[in-house]
Design a protein around this nucleic acid. Structure first.
Lengths: 212, 212
DNA sequence: TAGATTGTTAATCGATTAACAATC
DNA sequence: TAGATTGTTAATCGATTAACAATC
């Protein structure tokens, strides 16, 4: 569908477009111009038009963009019109919070299994899913074929677990372990989330305003 | 301390440098060259030297960088040599997970208070802090003067709560509510975290490899 | 039709990479 | 001293912004 290679900067803005268009839709907007959207999002109209034109022509001269239609297009570009089965490995505080907090279905995924190795956690429920023993992982994957996994496990288990999941056919990782997963395998998709780095950035910014 | 305006791209890399240098230190490294560090981090040696030179001269020709010394310098740049008192507003799943999961002290902050408005949560403990009633917020802030806050509250309460905290002297926000905080106040520091956007990006990347 | 706004090309700006003199 | 590697300037590359013809 995409024309050429899409730059990372553009990709990172797509979910935000999708989010804003959803809000506009909820607020009853039927159409919006690039100029108006730019103002709301803190971007330039040029950039918005350039971004959209990576994927096609979604607007109409003299009119602008139809909000619902554009949201639909971007949703399809993001792959939100279908759901990839996903599992969670590591049901500690953070894992449970994500399982409960995230609207997986609207993000292109379906959370179908949760695993941990702690006997105190195994058997408890998170939402409507039971936490399973990590020893059941192989069997579960053979049967249910999850294409993606959330890693909420300690740093030192991340690489080993990732390798195991790869061999079981998992292609994509949402990785919260403090480890920069850059697996040698090609065609593996990783989104590393470093919450600590995010907070550290806040520290930098807070301190640099104090200096002025 | 900083020479000129530092670009956002550089700022975003600083926490990652800090993290890698910590690892190197733990693994017994005494010195490292930009070339070697670049290889480990997946950057170029040029970029690393450019980045560091925004802040000063931390290396030595013919030798490279002393790991501990460089880590110390970057830590100071990031403001990690002191801790800003911080509060958490919203002690649901995600709030509790962050309170338990994040090494605040090593990120330049000190978590000193947790607030919620749900009576079922008020009074429970998260780590060694009790969850306080949000009605005690004003008094607490007047006394303890937190400079930063984590917002783990629903979207529709984010702006109002942020305004209230601002009036109480809070300068910086680590914002997990699904709302792009861009407050009109100047000198307000915000780090918006959109976990949903991160997962959506994973969806895009997963789907684009499938197309090839 | 006239006005508005897109899609797209050209110009600018900023970030990354390459090169090399300085120096440990 | 010779070798290594920085700090820094210059060259390249890519992303953002400006401009405008196309067209609804």
């Amino acid at each position: 569908m995409s024309k050429n290679a899409i730059s990372n900067s553009v990709i990172r803005r797509l979910p935000r477009y999708y989010r804003f268009l959803g809000e506009l839709e909820n607020n009853g907007y039927i159409r919006i111009s690039s100029r108006e959207l730019a103002e709301k999002m803190g971007l330039t109209a040029s950039q918005i038009r350039q971004d959209f034109n990576c994927f096609g022509e979604f607007g109409q001269q003299g009119y602008g963009y139809n909000v619902t239609e554009l949201k639909g297009e971007i949703g399809r570009i993001l792959g939100l019109d279908k759901q990839t089965p996903m599992i969670l490995v590591g049901a500690g505080n953070l894992g449970k919070a994500l399982a409960a907090h995230i609207d997986f279905h609207n993000r292109g995924f379906d959370l179908i299994g949760i695993f941990d190795k702690n006997p105190d956690i195994i058997g408890t429920r998170v939402g409507d899913l039971p936490v399973m023993d990590i020893s059941e992982l192989d069997e579960f994957c053979s049967e249910k074929k999850p294409g993606a996994a959330i890693l909420c496990i300690p740093r030192n288990q991340a690489e080993e677990t990732a390798e195991r999941l790869l061999s079981l056919g998992v292609l994509a990782f949402w990785n919260f372990s403090h480890y920069d997963l850059r697996l040698s395998h090609k065609d593996v998709v990783v989104e590393n989330v470093h919450l600590g780095d995010s907070l550290t950035t806040l520290s930098y910014c807070l301190n640099s305003i104090n200096e002025k």
